[in-house]
C-alpha cells in the first residue's frame, strides 16, 4: 500500500467535501431573495385581493428566476460530492 498516496488522497478528499459544503453557502442568496419575493407578494395580495391568481403566478416565476444561482451551486456541490473529480484522479 502506497502510504503517501493514501494520505494525500485523504487530504484531497477532505478538501473536496468541504468545498462542496462551502459551495452550498451560495443558497443564502436565493433564500433571502425568495423571502423578499414572498413578502412583496403577500403585500400585493393584501392590497389587491382580487388579483391573487396573477400575483401568485408572477411570484412563482420570480422564485424560479431567483433560484438559479442556488441550483447552480447545488449541481456543482453534487458533482464534487459524487463524481470526486480530484481525489479519484489520484488513482
Amino acid at each position: 500500500m502506497n502510504m503517501e498516496l493514501e494520505a494525500l488522497r485523504a487530504t484531497v478528499l477532505a478538501a473536496e467535501v468541504m468545498g462542496a459544503g462551502i459551495a452550498m453557502l451560495a443558497n443564502i442568496g436565493p433564500g433571502l431573495g425568495e423571502g423578499f419575493v414572498g413578502a412583496k407578494a403577500v403585500e400585493a395580495v393584501g392590497r389587491q385581493p382580487e388579483a391573487t391568481g396573477v400575483i401568485t403566478r408572477t411570484m412563482i416565476i420570480g422564485d424560479a428566476i431567483c433560484e438559479t444561482s442556488g441550483i447552480y451551486a447545488f449541481i456543482f456541490a453534487l458533482m464534487v460530492m459524487f463524481t470526486r473529480p480530484f481525489s479519484s484522479s489520484l488513482g
Partner: peptide, 30 residues
C-alpha cells in the same frame, strides 16, 4: 501534510476511502 497525516495512518489499517466505494455495504450513492 503527508508526513503529518502519516502519524495517524498505520500501514495495515484501511485508509479513509470515498463513500462511493463504501456504498456497497449499505451506504448512500447517487
Amino acid at each position: 501534510v503527508v508526513e503529518f497525516l502519516g502519524e495517524y495512518f498505520e500501514a495495515d489499517e484501511p485508509v479513509a476511502r470515498p463513500p462511493v466505494e463504501a456504498a456497497a455495504d449499505g451506504g448512500f450513492t447517487v
